[in-house]
Design a protein around this nucleic acid. Structure first.
Lengths: 202, 202
DNA sequence: GCAAATTAATGATTTATTCAAG
DNA sequence: CTTGAATAAATCATTAATTTGC
């Protein structure tokens, strides 16, 4: 198994394949608390990881996105199983009561969304992220705040998880100059015959 | 932090405010069939619209995204109301039958997911898009294929709805050179003290 | 041992939902 | 309330593990 052969040239795989070092670093950062790096952070991470192999900014972006999501998913599944156990327990008790012939009318107001966090469109009325603290686990408070140099913890306007694609946008928004729509715009029918829906090709 | 550096003058609004001309053009294109423009298309559109006012690529991206989504949402609501009417009709009939004392056991196999497309996590096991056809209404077949000139309907590798942010990425992935992690990487503890989760600032 | 077939992981996109400015 | 902006969930698609018959 020598997949690394011809790493650069042929078989440019259609998707990024992280090297062990890259993966290690990413996981280390994730473990350290990084979850949704912003534009500049992604830039730095990408530059750093590019030392160990081919990588792009979007790879870093997607990696954190997926890792966070699947972590949550894992936790959710765990919770769900616990809740199912609880539910079964409750059902068992109810059945026992039925068998004992006790007909009290309390039934505890067990809302279904408490028993089935399967979807849980994140905390319906709360701030998102926190990924886990809503569950009651700690984890969000051991993020090694040592070396609290000013770094870039400042608000920085908005964090804009995806603005890195904006920052890198070659300025179409130049407020001055750009007097004309350039030459490529002549290709623009505006009646939109050419720009078909790209999703139709999926 | 005055995001756009007071581009025009004062009140650098924190979010893009489309001019009437821009809106007109966008809606025209949408009406023409454009739904998920790819990178180069967004570039061209942005360049074109920048003639009428300040605009960025992400604005175009988000505009199509939101417009498409809210169109679907509108349709879904319409459908839902129709379905609710149908449901009420069915319930009414059932009640009538009950009132009439007729106890036939047919009840028509009315699956709940046909009666309650409220969430409709799109067809659970099917191909996505088509937005609504799972309900049984047409709608996905009247997409004005008129003027089917060859234009650029070609596969174009993959359409990649969001790769425009990749194309613009300044090459961190240069396979050669880039022998060192650059100087900015010294700021990288990898132990992730500085790169806190940016969502915590939201 | 070793490919073809199958399944599990995970990178990449699209869609749904939510937040917040005006 | 409308809608730009952002994020999370669901899904698609490709690659790596793993199994299976030979």
């Amino acid at each position: 198994m020598s997949p690394a052969a011809a790493a650069v040239s042929s078989s440019s795989s259609s998707r990024w394949c992280p090297t062990p070092e890259q993966l290690m670093i990413l996981e280390e950062m994730y473990r350290g608390g990084t979850r949704t790096p912003n534009a500049s952070q992604i830039q730095q991470i990408t530059a750093h990881l590019s030392f160990y192999g081919k990588i792009e900014g979007k790879n870093v972006f997607y990696w954190f996105q997926n890792h966070k999501a699947r972590d949550r998913q894992k936790l959710r599944r765990k919770l769900m199983s616990k809740q199912i156990v609880h539910q079964q327990h409750v059902l068992y008790n109810q059945q026992q009561q039925n068998n004992n012939g006790l007909q009290n009318h309390h039934h505890h107001h067990l809302h279904s969304h408490h028993l089935l966090p399967q979807f849980s469109h994140y905390t319906p009325g709360g701030v998102e992220d926190a990924s886990t603290p809503m569950v009651g686990y700690s984890w969000n408070h051991h993020h090694l705040p040592e070396r609290c140099e000013v770094v870039d913890d400042k608000p920085m306007a908005r964090t804009y998880g995806r603005d890195w694609m904006i920052m890198l946008d070659l300025g179409p928004t130049s407020p001055n100059s750009c007097s004309r729509p350039l030459k490529t715009l002549e290709l623009f029918p505006v009646t939109a015959t050419g720009l078909r829906d790209t999703t139709s090709t999926n």
